[in-house]
């Protein structure tokens, strides 16, 4: 039961983008670099990452009728 609730929580976090920063950190650790960033030593802070992520997410057509 607890495992199921945990999975549900994980799905809700993934769907809403609540875990976006953690995904980014994982990706950074894997590639040791930001794809669009020349600075490869430290990842962005949570606030900075979120700003970029939100601005990028809102380019182009995202919603329909």
């Amino acid at each position: 039961m607890i495992i199921k609730l945990k999975t549900l929580w994980k799905i809700i976090r993934q769907l809403s983008g609540d875990d976006a920063y953690e995904v980014y950190l994982k990706n950074f650790a894997k590639h040791h670099c930001n794809h669009n960033n020349t600075d490869c030593s430290t990842p962005l802070s949570k606030a900075d990452f979120f700003k970029r992520w939100q601005d990028e997410k809102w380019q182009g057509i995202k919603r329909c009728c």
């Binding site: 769907l15 980014y24 994982k26 990706n27």
Partner: peptide, 19 residues
């Protein structure tokens, strides 16, 4: 191929379905 942790992110199929 273009995974950048921001807009290109391989995601679990149910999450993609939700989005």
């Amino acid at each position: 191929r273009f995974d950048n942790g921001r807009d290109f992110v391989p995601t679990h199929k149910w999450i993609v379905f939700g989005h």
